[in-house]
Simulated scan of single mutants.
Amino acid sequence: MNTHPGSELDISIIDALQLNPRADWAELAGALCHSPKTLARKWSALSERGLAWIAIGPGPAFVRYGCAAFLVVNCRPHAKREVAAALIAEAAVVSVSATSGEADFLVDAFAPSLDDLSQLLSERIETIDGIVSVTTLVALATYREGSRWRVQALDLQQSALLTRPQAGAPRRSGPSLDDLDRLLLEALSRDGRQPWTDLADRCGTSGPTARRRVGKMIDSGRIALRCEGATALVGPIVPTTFMISVPPDEVNRVGEVLGRIPKCRVLEAITGPSNMLLTMWFRSTAEIAPFESALARELPSLVIADRFVSLRTYKRGGHILDAEGRSTALIPLASIFSGRIDRAAAGATGALSSKAGTEV
């Protein structure tokens, strides 16, 4: 069964850019067997329709530089529409999903520090009218994040041609970001594939400097670029989050094992009753039970305490999504890397709240 509703070339472009988000079209042309002009035209059409985009977000080492947390949010039954709109409008709230089970929403939040996270929770999240409770699970270590997930449309030879060399894990945190770094992040969040010269012009610097600065932020693990595709294009996705517990001395081993699973989207060591959070992107709910059975066989010390199936994702990586997963608006994430966390721009907040209110 073909689970990809998009054309073969569309999906191949998505996969290629998941391997190398800023590869130029000439570089992709050889692997995809199409001219650079054809690939550029295809990508432009996908982007304009909100079917695909390059997102910028926290990288695999973000916890060295800031604070990442997963929020389990419960609210009054008739307040879900308003709560969803308020959560979506928060710039520090990167992703929002309505879920099955005891949680109404699962939220990914990022902040420059624990103090900023505390302020976000006490002044902006917990005060939202309609919220009953918020359980905060702070990320301690990242074993896999979203930029490594792929639609897997390319064969091994094509993948090998486009795979970027992996930078070694930095032994220490990099320097703090300055104003130029923040300008570059802001511009990249709006168009992750804009040419270096255009990016430099927007930020008042040179092309080589822009490329070097962005490269350092990516290599340090502070940020990650990733290509996202709407479900209307890449096919059905059933994000399923498992709260799991393993013996403390096995966390790293389990993290390495689970992090290699192709359908793994996110894997973190966390605080709370369960010490790991795992999000898998299945094609259907029929895959969940066999996966749990396989976990029990392969990792007998692992215990699944709870699982949440995403019923609808409203926001991912700062992008506001419609019912078919298309990007309809963006709240840039630059503030989560700076010394403060800002609300969404006033004009955008009202529009997003209105949009979310009509769709929740």
Rank of each mutant, 00 (worst) to 15 (best):
H319Q: 09
E186K: 09
V266K: 06
R193Q: 12
G235V: 05
A52W: 07
V107C: 07
H319T: 11
S301H: 13
S338A: 15
L51C: 06
L184G: 00
D342P: 00
P5Y: 01
A345C: 01
L140H: 10
P195L: 05
G30A: 08
L302E: 04
T127L: 05
T127E: 07
E292C: 13
A89G: 10
R76C: 12
G168C: 10
D116Y: 01
G317Y: 10
K263R: 06
P175N: 14
K37M: 13
L162R: 03
K355Q: 11
L87M: 06
P195H: 09
I261K: 00
F308M: 06
L267C: 01
D24L: 09
D104V: 14
T142P: 00
L161F: 08
L161G: 02
G101L: 09
D10H: 13
S293Q: 15
L183D: 02
A344N: 02
T205E: 10
S95K: 07
R41G: 13
N20S: 14
S47H: 15
L156R: 14
E145L: 02
D178K: 06
F110S: 02
V309R: 08
G59I: 12
L19A: 04
L302G: 06
G259C: 08
I270V: 15
R316K: 15
D10L: 02
A45W: 15
R144L: 00
R253P: 00
L277H: 02
L19Q: 08
G215R: 14
T136Q: 09
A210K: 03
A269S: 15
L188H: 05
S47F: 14
R164V: 06
V134M: 09
A45D: 12
A111L: 08
V214N: 03
S354Q: 13
V214Y: 04
A89D: 06
L71V: 10
T349K: 04
E8G: 04
S12D: 14
P248Y: 04
A85R: 00
R340Q: 14
R172G: 13
D115N: 11
L321H: 02
G215K: 15
L225P: 05
D179Q: 11
I88R: 09
A224E: 07
I125V: 15
A29W: 07
I13C: 05
L51M: 11
S147T: 01
W149R: 03
R190D: 02
A85G: 10
S176E: 07
W196Q: 13
K315L: 06
S274R: 07
E90G: 04
L162A: 06
R211H: 14
V246Y: 03
G215P: 12
E250L: 12
M280R: 05
V83F: 03
W53C: 01
F70E: 12
L199R: 02
N252L: 11
T285Y: 02
P236Q: 11
C264Y: 00
L330P: 02
I223R: 01
L185W: 00
D10W: 03
T136D: 13
C264G: 01
E82V: 10
